[in-house]
Design a protein around this nucleic acid. Structure first.
Lengths: 225, 225
DNA sequence: ACAAAAGTGTTGAGAGTACACCCATGC
DNA sequence: GCATGGGTGTACTCTCAACACTTTTGT
């Protein structure tokens, strides 16, 4: 029995691309040029080519929209409800990516009239089931933030501790104690001083960078046992 | 442009089915009846029907091999390397399932000459990339065990605390302190006494059951912040 | 000198970990 | 009565969470 005797759905790779902008978490969305959902905003994505892996497809989509390579990229979930796309059976493998703050200007691809960053707490209506997918990505990001060092992937090369704290507060949607935050980050030994200072209003702030060699350990307190 | 103008890979759903047997973690494997990898052991799975969702496909596979429904089932990961199947481009959405100890006798489906439980620390060679997939499933299971109550899904209806501890030790591959284990489980308020006792050698053991209403909270100690 | 943001320590409570002996039953 | 597995409590350590003032700069 040949493979083609089985029904073959279409497979797409969608990439939720997060960044920080003005201390708020943003996601990159494109405005669809063609039906269905013409003119609506959507998560960037496209069909998986027959000779590229899923991850390669995701990397390609990411580069088309942002021009960046080699950023944090992780498979999120595969969405395969029967009627999620009115054109037919389309299964999408969703990825999420984290790009450093303020380095990317979105580029609209062939299939889009526009592409821009949207703050995740103030999104437009989205095409397909993309609202659910984005919500799931946000949940996963927040969750990973709590037990890995993934938050640093969203920071620029150099940053102050206050800026880092503001990012964490924005994503977690809660306020954190400054002294506890600083102690915990510094004790974790994952950042180092750059020697530079950020000047502005008030006392200048020491700048830090993420240490490449610092592999942040998962350190969860077990529920059981 | 129609959907069918894009190349369409085949999509399968594979299900790693775990259970406990004689206090060791086991996975259900089938022996393939047809090429490729004829006669080799493999994770059960099959093509996703055009009018069923991914989860429905996984549930169907699970029921074909075990006869059970309504057990714990979770999407694991989607594997889509280009050459993972010699027949052509096949993307597999992997799920994993947990079935209670000693309730299932495997049933070989149409595509298998045999189906049986294998202890996960002593597996035969596996077809395709199934060794990687199973390893990934095991890692995820071990990980979830540490911060959710998912371990109970592997237990029979009634169990003693020593049996439960042995299951945890088997999966985590480490020894646990009896007094600490018992205190933590009992304080978590997720099991209740059945009133029955298990008799055998030595002092009879109180039996417990999992409380349906107990939603085990995730309670991780954050790494940051 | 004052406004603005950076930086800094201590204490109390709760959870985790290590550790050794008595209890109930079957043979 | 003894072998077998079930069941129990305490002390120490470590991490978390709460909390307020001083320092450095620009204007």
């Amino acid at each position: 029995m040949a493979l083609s005797d089985y029904p073959q759905p279409s497979v797409t790779a969608d990439v939720i691309i997060f960044t920080m902008h003005e201390q708020d978490l943003h996601a990159l969305l494109i405005q669809r040029k063609r039906p269905p959902f013409e003119g609506m905003w959507a998560i960037p994505g496209g069909f998986v080519d027959i000779d590229e892996s899923l991850e390669e497809a995701a990397e390609r989509e990411l580069e088309e929209e942002t021009g960046v390579r080699d950023v944090y990229l992780e498979q999120l979930y595969t969405f395969g409800e029967v009627n999620r796309d009115p054109r037919g059976r389309v299964i999408t493998v969703a990825y999420f990516a984290l790009v450093p703050a303020d380095v990317v200007e979105p580029q609209a691809g062939d299939d889009a009239t526009d592409a821009r960053w949207w703050p995740v707490y103030d999104l437009p209506p989205l095409a397909f089931d993309h609202h659910d997918i984005l919500g799931y990505a946000l949940q996963r990001l927040r969750y990973k933030l709590e037990y890995t060092a993934v938050g640093f992937e969203l920071m620029p090369e150099a940053f102050s501790l206050s800026e880092l704290q503001a990012v964490y507060e924005g994503i977690l949607a809660e306020e954190l104690d400054k002294r506890n935050f600083r102690r915990k980050i510094l004790n974790a030994d994952v950042i180092e001083e750059t020697g530079e200072y950020r000047t502005g209003e008030g006392r200048p702030a020491k700048l830090y960078r993420f240490r490449d060699d610092a592999v942040a350990e998962i350190n969860a307190r077990r529920l059981f046992p």
